[in-house]
Amino acid sequence: MEDSERGGGSLSSRLNWLRAGVLGANDGIVSTAGLVVGVAGATSSADALLTAGLAGLLAGSLSMASGEYVSVSSQRDSEQAALAFEERELAERPVAELAELTGLLEDRGLTPAVAREVAEQLTARDALTAHARVELGIDPEQIVNPWHAAWASFIAFTVGALLPLLAIVLPPAGLRVPVTVSAVLCALLLTGWTGARLGGAPVPRSVLRNVLGGGLAMAVTYLAGLLLGAAGA
């Protein structure tokens, strides 16, 4: 049973990471597509489009990575502080902590006798892990590394951003915007579907929201580019 729970927790963790990667790629697609399509509305220069796209890719990926690093570092610090406090409590008040664990297990539906026996067995095996999981909702073996999170966000955003960047610079001038819009909408359909399946959300609603949001972003930035291009002409 314990191996099963461990495997389930590991699977859940991997699914969360995969979903985060999909969402990061989605952000890269939408933000970079909005940028390059907006620039395409103002100019037909391939050099300008490539420069803007690369700048957006680097800025976005580095911003995502640094934001994820700071966020996960704060979470990690809080979890480690909670674990350190719990470890001191176990060393200073073992009897009271055993009673607390027993009470928490009773709150989960165990009878007092069974809760006491389970609490004693968990405490004998690994008291800190037992209290971390039951009392704090933390698994000491699965505390996220902020560097892993930062690199994952950087890579996911970069992979997503490459699609609109390549779609806007590779085709002939007259096909750049239609090709980019088509490629981006198809990619958003895929990421919306994948994210919904991984997160257990309704697929049609998630896909529609994703596609409409990306389409609106490109439409607004393209119109802005047209206006700026006309004003600068």
Rank of each mutant, 00 (worst) to 15 (best):
V203R: 14
A127H: 08
G56T: 13
S45H: 07
P172G: 14
D47M: 15
A82N: 07
V179C: 05
V70T: 13
G28M: 07
L15Y: 06
S206A: 14
H131I: 12
I143H: 05
L223W: 05
Q121V: 13
V118A: 09
R197I: 01
P202Y: 07
R205L: 12
P140C: 11
M64T: 03
L23Y: 08
L11H: 06
A91L: 11
V159G: 01
V22F: 04
V207S: 08
T191S: 10
V22A: 05
S4Q: 11
L83K: 04
A152V: 05
G229D: 03
A124C: 11
I155L: 12
L90N: 02
L223A: 12
E86W: 01
V177A: 02
S206E: 12
N16R: 13
E79R: 09
E120W: 07
P146M: 10
S63P: 12
L18R: 08
R209S: 00
S44E: 15
Y69Q: 10
A42T: 13
A233W: 12
F154M: 05
G103W: 03
T158A: 10
G60A: 09
A20N: 06
V134Q: 02
R116G: 14
G56L: 05
P146F: 08
G200D: 11
L23C: 06
G137Y: 11
G137K: 11
G53H: 09
V72D: 00
I29R: 04
A96R: 07
A217D: 09
A48L: 10
A55W: 12
L62N: 02
E68D: 15
V114F: 12
G56E: 06
D47T: 15
L90P: 00
A96S: 06
R205E: 13
T32H: 04
W151G: 09
Y222N: 00
G9D: 15
A124S: 15
G200H: 13
L101H: 03
V36W: 00
G53V: 07
H148V: 09
S182W: 11
T32G: 13
V207K: 03
E2L: 08
G28K: 08
L62T: 10
S74R: 07
I168W: 03
I168R: 04
G8T: 07
E92K: 09
V184W: 00
A217C: 10
I143Q: 08
L122C: 06
R116E: 14
V36N: 01
E100N: 15
A91W: 01
R209L: 05
G60M: 11
L101E: 00
V30Q: 00
M218H: 03
Y69L: 14
L57N: 13
V159M: 12
F157Y: 14
E106F: 04
L50D: 10
A233E: 11
A99M: 12
T123D: 07
L62V: 15
E141A: 14
L227Q: 06
A25C: 09
E68Y: 12
A20V: 03
S10P: 01
T194K: 00
A217G: 03
L62P: 01
L35M: 13
A25V: 06
G34H: 08
Q80C: 11
L188Y: 00
S78W: 06
L105T: 08
Y69C: 06
R93M: 04
A81Y: 11
